[in-house]
């Protein structure tokens, strides 16, 4: 996990495109907030592996969002129940309920629907916000952090050696 964290920092500090890291975070949000063994997460996994997104960011994001999901599951349940029982959407749900693919997706579960909807709505805003934050980080925070005594000290220690050893793997792989 420590290696992954270093990799993430290396990617943040490197010349890697900010959208590669942001997209990884957004995908990890879908996979982390929704029940992991859902059909749509297979698609997320395919996209994460196929598209050049930062894998370290995805893994870290998955851990963070899974932890968040445990806390806000009741909210997902309420959103899902509201949407699934909305009378004006009943026709839509009924037609897709009769589709094998959607039944396999288990869309009619209140938590699956609530969390998927929540993460899809937040997908683009998070992508934009993350992009901005990464750029800001690189221009403002990174330079300041590099000069701090802690980082200087760390650079002289074992952890930094480990970080250096891992740096050969490439940040935006």
């Amino acid at each position: 996990m420590l290696k992954i964290l270093f990799k993430l920092f290396k990617a943040l500090n490197s010349e890697a495109e900010p959208h590669q890291i942001s997209l990884a975070f957004c995908f990890s949000m879908i996979a982390g907030l929704t029940p992991f063994l859902s059909l749509h997460n297979l698609l997320v996994l395919l996209l994460v592996l196929l598209l050049r997104v930062n894998l370290s960011a995805f893994v870290v994001g998955l851990g963070v969002f899974s932890a968040i999901a445990y806390i806000i599951d009741p909210l997902f349940h309420r959103i899902g129940l509201f949407v699934l029982t909305a009378s004006n959407l009943e026709g839509l749900w009924t037609s897709i309920y009769n589709s094998t693919l959607w039944r396999l997706e288990n869309f009619n579960n209140s938590i699956v629907m609530g969390s998927l909807l929540f993460s899809l709505i937040l997908f683009i805003p998070l992508f934009i916000i993350m992009n901005i934050l990464i750029v800001k980080y690189r221009t403002n925070v990174m330079a300041w952090v590099e000069k701090t005594k802690i980082v200087q000290g760390l650079r002289a220690g074992k952890i930094y050696n480990l970080y250096k050893a891992a740096s050969g793997w490439g940040g935006a792989s």
Partner: peptide, 17 residues
């Protein structure tokens, strides 16, 4: 009422063709 992989949820049943 089912217990999904994480937390609790409800499966809504719709009319089948």
């Amino acid at each position: 009422a089912v217990k999904p992989m994480r937390g609790k949820g409800i499966n809504i049943v719709y009319k089948e063709k």
